[in-house]
C-alpha cells in the first residue's frame, strides 16, 4: 500500500507574503481594534471605555445616512458598469492593429490617478468652461453639480462609470479571448442566434472574471474617497458624502480616534459580510450548474 505524504514546504514560500500582509494589514487592523475601545487624548493619555464608541457610532444618524448613500452608489455603478463593460468587450476588435488600439484607448481612464480624475470631471462639468456642463446648459438643462444634489450624484456616477467600466471591459475581453473557437463552430452548426451564443457560451465562460470584476468594483466603490472629495467635496450639503469621507472627517478633521476606529470596524464588517455573501452566492450558483 502506498501512503501519500503531504509536502508542506510550499507554506514556507508563502511566508514572505504573510509577513508583508501582517505588517500592512493585520497589525494596523489590530491597532484599530485597540483604539476602538479607548478614549485617546495623546499617545500617553488614554482611558478604556468599553463599547461606548460602538454605541455612539451605531446610533449616529450621519453614519446611517452615509451608509445608505454608499449602498445606493455602489449598486448604481455596478448595475451600469457590468452590462456596459460586457458590451464594450463584445464590441472590441479581436485581431490586428485595431485590437491593440482599442485596448490602449479603453485602458486610458484606468491609468489616470484618482485625484486627477476628480479634477478632470470638476472642470468637465462646469457650466462656464467645461464641455459637459456647457453642453447641458446649451441644450436647456439647468445643470450645476455644486448646488444641485441630483446633478452632483449624476456627475459622481458618470465619473465612476467613465473611470472604471474599462476594468470590467478588459476583464471580460480577456475572458472572451480564452473561449476556444470550437464552441463558436458548434454554435454555427446549430445555427444559434447571436443572443444564444452570448447567453449559453460567452456569459457562462465569463462568470469567473465577472465575479472578480464585480467584487473588485463593489469593494472599491464602497471605499470611494478621492474622486468625490475632489469633485464635490461631499456636497452640496452632505449629498455625496460617502462612508470613507465621513470617516476621514471624524478621524482627521475632528481627531476623534476612538469613535473613528469603531466606525472603521463596523465599515470593515459590512464590507466583509457583503463580499462573503456575494462570493458564496455566485460560487454556489456555479457549483449547481
Amino acid at each position: 500500500m502506498q501512503i501519500k505524504v503531504e509536502n508542506n514546504k510550499a507554506w514556507f514560500l508563502v511566508l514572505p507574503v504573510f509577513i508583508i500582509v501582517a505588517f500592512s494589514a493585520i497589525i494596523p487592523l489590530m491597532t484599530v481594534v485597540n483604539y476602538s475601545v479607548q478614549d485617546i487624548f495623546d499617545p500617553y493619555t488614554r482611558y478604556f471605555v468599553g463599547t461606548e464608541w460602538f454605541e455612539q457610532v451605531m446610533q449616529d444618524s450621519r453614519l446611517h445616512e452615509a451608509l445608505i448613500r454608499q449602498f445606493i452608489f455602489s449598486f448604481t455603478i455596478l448595475i451600469i458598469e457590468v452590462p456596459l463593460g460586457i458590451c464594450v468587450a463584445l464590441m472590441m476588435p479581436t485581431k490586428g492593429r485595431g485590437a491593440s488600439l482599442a485596448l490602449i484607448l479603453v485602458a486610458i481612464p484606468l491609468l489616470i490617478p484618482w485625484n486627477v480624475v476628480g479634477t478632470i470631471w470638476q472642470i468637465f462639468g462646469r457650466a462656464d468652461i467645461g464641455l459637459f456642463g456647457a453642453f447641458m446648459t446649451n441644450i436647456g438643462i439647468d445643470y450645476n453639480y455644486s448646488s444641485n444634489p441630483i446633478d452632483a450624484w449624476l456627475t459622481v456616477v458618470l465619473m465612476d462609470v467613465w473611470h472604471w467600466t474599462p476594468l470590467i471591459a478588459l476583464l471580460c475581453y480577456s475572458g472572451l479571448r480564452s473561449i476556444p473557437e470550437v464552441y463558436y463552430q458548434a454554435a454555427r452548426i446549430d445555427q444559434a442566434s447571436r443572443w444564444a451564443v452570448f447567453r449559453y457560451i460567452q456569459l457562462p465562460k465569463l462568470a469567473n472574471v465577472l465575479v472578480i470584476g464585480m467584487l473588485l468594483r463593489f469593494m472599491d466603490s464602497f471605499m470611494i474617497y478621492t474622486e468625490p472629495f475632489v469633485l464635490t467635496g461631499g456636497g452640496p450639503g452632505t449629498a455625496t458624502t460617502f462612508l470613507s469621507q465621513s470617516l476621514v472627517q471624524q478621524a482627521i478633521g475632528q481627531f476623534d480616534i476612538g469613535p473613528a476606529a469603531a466606525f472603521s470596524l463596523v465599515y470593515f464588517l459590512i464590507i466583509l459580510l457583503v463580499c462573503w455573501v456575494f462570493y458564496t452566492t455566485i460560487m454556489n450558483m456555479q457549483k449547481d450548474k
Partner: peptide
C-alpha cells in the same frame, strides 16, 4: 504604540 488593553 499599538495601545493594547487587556480585553483586546
Amino acid at each position: 504604540w499599538m495601545s493594547w488593553t487587556l480585553p483586546t
